[in-house]
Design a protein around this nucleic acid. Structure first.
Ligand SMILES: [Mn+2]
Ligand SMILES: [Mn+2]
Ligand SMILES: [Zn+2]
Ligand SMILES: [Zn+2]
Lengths: 139, 139
DNA sequence: TTAAGAATGCAACTTTGTTGCAAAAGTATT
DNA sequence: AATACTTTTGCAACAAAGTTGCATTCTTAA
């Protein structure tokens, strides 16, 4: 009987602590991307706000989670797939969707970001695509 | 001798005030997208922080500026083209580029966001694409 | 078991964003 | 040009978000 969160931490060469396991479990149980605030709501009585900030930062750097840009000053985070975790850097080239109705942001893992041609002189490192609209639960 | 900012305000049925003209001038003079903070730096001694927040909000609603999502909790704003201003809603379907070196975010007005197919049940309202990398000034 | 290193909690602080309200400025009308 | 009406602004007070240093606690590996 092995714990999925614990495995992820070990594979990323991170020490296994209660707060990290808890935060990973929250992500593993979530069906949508989470803002710092969401996580705080779920475990503020257990763990300090600062710890949550630092944990998210660590997870980002290790390729355990990726962040999703937004115009509402609420960066959201979602678990990466195996490829990011094992390679230690990000391969998240899928589209994200934010529902204007329920407010949830989800990874559309099967929808790849289409290629785009930049003007001469620009070099692409990362690309993000976020679509707003109505999700399938809200339509 | 007519003032460009003043024209924009009148066309948007906004009253012409000193702070609005000043903030529009800042945008008109800028070659990159601006965060609230950038604007505050340029005119905090003249105008109150709250006024800047409210002005940006008003400009957004009127289709004078559009906002650009980010993962750094610094939403940036840029002037819209004529189409948004005259129609009163947004038609900004161009790609944005944020340089990892100089930190500047720019509108790539000539680069259209490519079409993307969403899974069944999702309806698209808006779409945003932000590319990170090295800009032509920094390469 | 222990020693070294890493992570956490706490406090204090800075920055960012919001709200209500009175004063000031802008607009339309006479 | 003066007026009345409406909108915008500045200020104050506040709430929320994010950062930093440091002492304590926890993890890990020897
Ligand atoms: Mn994702
Ligand atoms: Mn733009
Ligand atoms: Zn929804
Ligand atoms: Zn650059």
């Amino acid at each position: 009987m092995t714990n999925q969160g614990e495995d992820i931490l070990k594979n990323s060469a991170l020490s296994v602590t209660a707060s990290r396991k808890r935060i990973l479990d929250i992500f593993l149980a979530a069906d949508n991307a989470l803002a710092h605030q969401d996580i705080e709501t779920k475990c503020a009585e257990q763990y300090d706000r600062v710890t949550i900030y630092r944990t998210l930062q660590t997870f980002l750097e290790k390729g355990i989670i990726h962040n999703i840009p937004s115009t509402d000053n609420m960066v959201r985070y979602a678990l990466c797939n195996e490829a990011c975790i094992t390679s230690g850097h990000h391969h998240d080239n899928h589209v994200h969707f934010k529902c204007d109705d329920c407010g949830k942001t989800v990874c559309l893992d099967d929808v790849n970001i289409p290629a785009v041609n930049l003007p001469k002189g620009y070099t692409m490192k990362e690309i993000n695509m976020v679509v707003n609209g109505i999700c399938k639960s809200c339509k």
